[in-house]
Amino acid sequence: MSYLIGHFDKCTGCSICQLACSERTHGGFNPRFGNLDIRMSDDALVHHPFVCHQCENAFCEKVCPASAISRDGESGALVVDREVCVGCGTCADACPINMIRVVGKKAYKCDLCGGEPECVAVCPAGAIELIVKTVNAEVMP
């Protein structure tokens, strides 16, 4: 089980992560098309990277009418099977932190790049970190 976390103390707001993700996912550049987001707050005192939590109780997976979202056994990411996806956007609506984009009638979300996330590799400030969990201590007493 792996997921990303974003560190607001290190994020510089440069969007290189979004640009790289957009290129990897869609073959070109626009941060809006990256599968992660940077939000500015407190008069720009803070830039906060928002990344998919790869939730254990994933709303996106739960609501998909076509069952197109499932967990990848290897990376632990929730991935969209775009052969099956009908582009209805129900998953995007269900995600409270807006981590799903519908582009050209297909849903796109963070797939952890199969286990080696590009955003982690390109971030110049180390503001995105890949957490690999071996024991789920919090939910399994």
């Binding site: 510089t12 707001g13 290189i16 110049p124 400030a125």
Partner: peptide
């Protein structure tokens, strides 16, 4: 903290 322009 540090602040950057787009892509920098």
């Amino acid at each position: 903290r540090d602040l950057a322009c787009a892509g920098c």
